[in-house]
């Protein structure tokens, strides 16, 4: 490379958002049986169903957000702001319609559904935040498969 040439750094093409969301979903699936069985024993099958639906909504919401934002960041970064806002609105609309439908059907313990939705969202997010901040602070903490230090 001559002194006048310089390498233009390319944007990352890694599936960062999907990795975070899959990790979150795994943690959600670890927590789900404990929450569902616990609430089912405490408040009955309607509460268990409410917890299942709330956890499902939270996990699918994370996965959908990650897929949309990741795809846009890789393929059309100039549209990231618009896509992020529109996806937020559309997902909120879908959650509202689902919530209204579930409430109208009256098949779940409604307070349990609501508090599981908020509680699981925050618990999973803080749990993931802890892992992510550790990874960012100590990038060499988890060696990649097949990587051996000389």
């Amino acid at each position: 490379m001559s002194p006048m040439e310089f390498a233009v750094p390319q944007p990352s093409t890694e599936r960062i958002e999907s990795t975070i969301a899959h990790d979150l979903a795994k943690k959600g699936l670890i927590v789900a049986p404990i929450v569902v069985i616990g609430l089912g024993v405490w408040r009955g099958p309607e509460a268990a169903l409410g917890a299942v639906l709330a956890l499902g909504i939270v996990i699918v919401n994370f996965l959908a957000a990650a897929w949309i934002l990741g795809w846009t960041a890789r393929n059309a970064p100039h549209a990231l702001t618009g896509v992020a806002l529109m996806s937020f609105l559309v997902r909120l609309l879908i959650i509202t319609i689902l919530g209204a439908g579930i409430k109208a059907l009256d098949i779940v313990d409604w307070p349990v559904f609501c508090f599981t939705l908020i509680g699981s969202y925050f618990v999973l997010l803080f749990w993931e935040l802890r892992s992510v901040s550790l990874t960012l602070a100590y990038p060499g903490l988890k060696p990649k498969p097949g990587h051996h230090e000389e």
């Binding site: 958002e17 975070i20 957000a65 990650a66 997010l125 993931e128 960012l136």
Partner: peptide, 9 residues
Amino acid sequence: RTTMFLGIA
């Protein structure tokens, strides 16, 4: 992107 995604969440 990592911090952005978590911030959005």
